[in-house]
Design a protein around this nucleic acid. Structure first.
Lengths: 221, 221
DNA sequence: ACTTTTAGACTGACCAGTCAGATCAAAGGG
DNA sequence: CCCTTTGATCTGACTGGTCAGTCTAAAAGT
């Protein structure tokens, strides 16, 4: 009955057709992301209503559906968008360290720090991520898997380089170790934010660093 | 207008008044737990309906409300019940190791293994746990905090003993390290179950053990 | 001119929780 | 043994409310 639904669908897909989205639109989408990530982190996806999201973003409900095809799509794009930021941040930290002449282990350490900073800056996003990642049967399983893969790849490539450079043992299981490292940082950061917000980033970083560098089981000074 | 509602409320609270719950009841409650944990792990709490839980448990909806005061209470008791099993399992692993003459670091290692085995046996429970733990604003926040505390305490006490015995450095931040270790095991185990189910427990255990014993950053053989 | 946003009424589906009555299992009576 | 009673347990149709998504006509914005 109108052309609007088509334009709505196209834009909502986030498939980013050639046409520029327009600056007005981009800012509305960002406001919706910001509102949604906080609400969903607090209450969960199903318990968060579209009306709440619109309210918090200071936008009419219709606007949500003009910008996103559905609540589900809004959520998927939110996850993709946010996790891309994290992956980028990790990669940049590693590259900068290596470029500055640091070792690969230094790069891992820098990534831990970058991860902590990122989570400290937007804990809500990581809350969503861990809350959804291991669910089976979800509509957005594909989105999550791909997003996870991108983050893990960054860590894995640094681990591989480190092994190649002889800094780490060749016996290392790259894939499992990367997943464990990421998990360690994630959970430690979220626990820090939730249960010990008074601790400094440095404290948390030091504790994780010690774990990474083998000063836990090895009784180092 | 009857005595039933009273009895229902009392029982549903799980406050465990003096009266024995009766064997029929206990088995129904277990069936409901089993059904709920799987469904909620798959779909999330809000997205899982009470009808679904009842169906899967092979029970009428009314029975759910006869046994639990509300959907929320069912969930809380489920979490408490399951996490108590985990804490117990960790503690037993540590005690057995020490009793058998192992070091405290050996005990940590045994706890990692126990954690992996536990999660392998009922991944759904841990999915719930991580999905809810860091949410703010939730009704069952208190339940989760207490349950988390009990599990962490077990790890912390072993770490403390290890430091006292000189096996670990006194500089260790007990609380942060315990949280990081628990997180590492949790995430690694869930990732293993979800994304690399073909790997053996031994592989995963070895990767984590290596991390714990400092053979990652220290380039050991 | 064209895109984007507004305000909010509306619908159709879905769902937590209720309640009056059915069923069970155990204990006693005959 | 079979019958009855009693309280505990279970049943499922029903209610009242909630929510995703639709739609419209008009107003901004660019």
């Amino acid at each position: 009955m109108s052309v609007l639904p088509v334009s709505r669908g196209g834009a909502g897909d986030g498939t980013a057709a050639g046409a520029a989205p327009g600056p007005r639109r981009a800012s509305t989408r960002r406001r919706l992301f910001d509102a949604a990530v906080v609400l969903i982190a607090e209450q969960g996806f199903s318990a968060t209503t579209v009306d709440e999201i619109a309210d918090r973003a200071g936008v009419a409900k219709g606007t949500v559906y003009y910008n996103f095809a559905s609540k589900n799509v809004l959520y998927e794009e939110l996850l993709r968008d946010g996790m891309d930021l994290l992956s980028g941040s990790l990669r940049r930290a590693a590259e900068a360290t290596v470029a500055a002449g640091g070792t690969r282990v230094d790069a891992l350490d820098a990534m831990i720090r970058a991860g902590l900073d990122f989570i400290a800056g937007s804990p809500a996003l990581m809350q969503l991520y861990v809350a959804e990642l291991w669910r089976t049967n979800r509509t957005w399983r594909a989105t999550l898997t791909s997003v996870r893969g991108r983050a893990l790849t960054v860590v894995e490539s640094v681990l591989r380089d480190a092994v190649a450079a002889g800094e780490l043992s060749g016996e290392l299981d790259i894939s499992l170790t990367a997943s464990a490292l990421l998990g360690m940082v994630l959970v430690a950061a979220l626990d820090w934010q939730s249960f010990q917000p008074d601790r400094s980033v440095e404290d948390v970083h030091a504790a994780l660093s010690r774990l990474l560098q083998g000063r836990v089981g090895a009784a180092g000074g």
